[in-house]
Write a protein that binds this DNA or RNA. Sequence first.
DNA 1: GTCTACTTAGACCGAGCCCTAGCGGGCTC
Length: 447
Amino acid sequence: MYHDAVTNFDMARLFYEMAHLLEVRGESAFRVRAYQRAAQQIESLAEDLAAVAARGELQTIPGIGKDLATRITEYLATGKIGQLEALRAEVPPNFLTLLEVRGLGPKTAKLLLERLGVDSVDRLEEACTSGEILTVAGIREKTCENILKGIAIWRAGRSRMLLARARDIARQVVAVLQAQAPVERIEIAGSLRRMRETVKDIDLLVTSTDPPRVIETFVALPSVLEVIGAGDTKASVHHTDGIQIDLRVVDPAAFGAALQYFTGAKDHNVRLREMASRRRLKISEYGVFDELTGNRVAGATEEEVYAAVGLPWIPPELRENGGEIEAALTGALPALITADRIRGDLHAHTDWSDGHHSLAKLIEAAEARGYEYILVSDHSKSSTVAGGLGADRLREQIRAVRELQPRYKIRILAGSECDILADGAMDFPPEVLGELDIVLAAVRTPT
DNA sequence: GTCTACTTAGACCGAGCCCTAGCGGGCTC
């Protein structure tokens, strides 16, 4: 069976792709929505889709009927979906990227493909800037302007990827390399290690007895879209999910120095180099060296590197030249907030509006994380698209929440006549939260 | 496409804005 390599995320992504392709084809909006809904369900599934399939229970997932269950089974067994392959063949390879441009929908995109051969964002931009797009009936200056704005937003968003997504990709690549390449040690470096909210690329550092084979395995991964460059100890590739990954194989004696160097941030490293210079030392990705003798005095571990310039090890999350060097020098580095110190969640939706899970599941998840409280903040009726609660349904939800007493201490923040709190709903004394298990509030979506 | 109420068919989220075309459709949230 193929399913060992299939993640719920992969399957959901394929269904989203099918929804887009069906939309471009002009299929029924309900059919399109069926694929989108199924993708959402799979994304929020608490267990491995393959396990559900193995039990023959795919059709117990809401939104998955006979047809979609068949598609899932086909993919798990073969790694392909015949219908998707056929749909893909109907449009150019990168055509769907056009739909990521805000302001450009499937119909307009298809029209531009047919009339002007617009098959990529670059080509779209060219058609807009040259004015060629204005020759297409139904498109005027204003639309052209909006599309150009959309392209600018698309480019800005594309240049960086959200941390969680980049981390998933990095972990997958690390896991495959550990399984398939002669890797002794492998670490994620760069802004991903610093846990920046968004990252531009993924940096991986490896030690190995056979560097060329690591590189060879890396560039041949199925998830690699394009190899930018590859040598004996270094390679850069474009991943299919739209992010660049750089991999370096380094000497174990310099691993700490390389990890420190490639973790950055740049300004933090500049400060370190200045401190080293004052001690007649030189720091590089290869180690810490005595300026006079050229001997390496540190490099195997990050702790060694920091100690060489008179500092304790500094957590990567703090390495932004934002006062962490001064704090380290005076022994005042802050303790980072760890997951076990998070006491509660102040913004949670349930399936009463657009959440994917029931109130019971939400509570279960909160308890599993050791939370002291959770705020149920479903949409109000002002957000119809999200299935927001009107007065009657809100009363029902309040009743459902109250039924959880006395096991949980509860505070209801919504008014009796659906007099829903404005966004200031979170503005109540934090000490109150400590006494509560569940708070219910319907928060108005800004309109 | 799925789901539901009934076994074959109909419902399925919708308001508001923008743009183009002259009334309706695309798009967003």
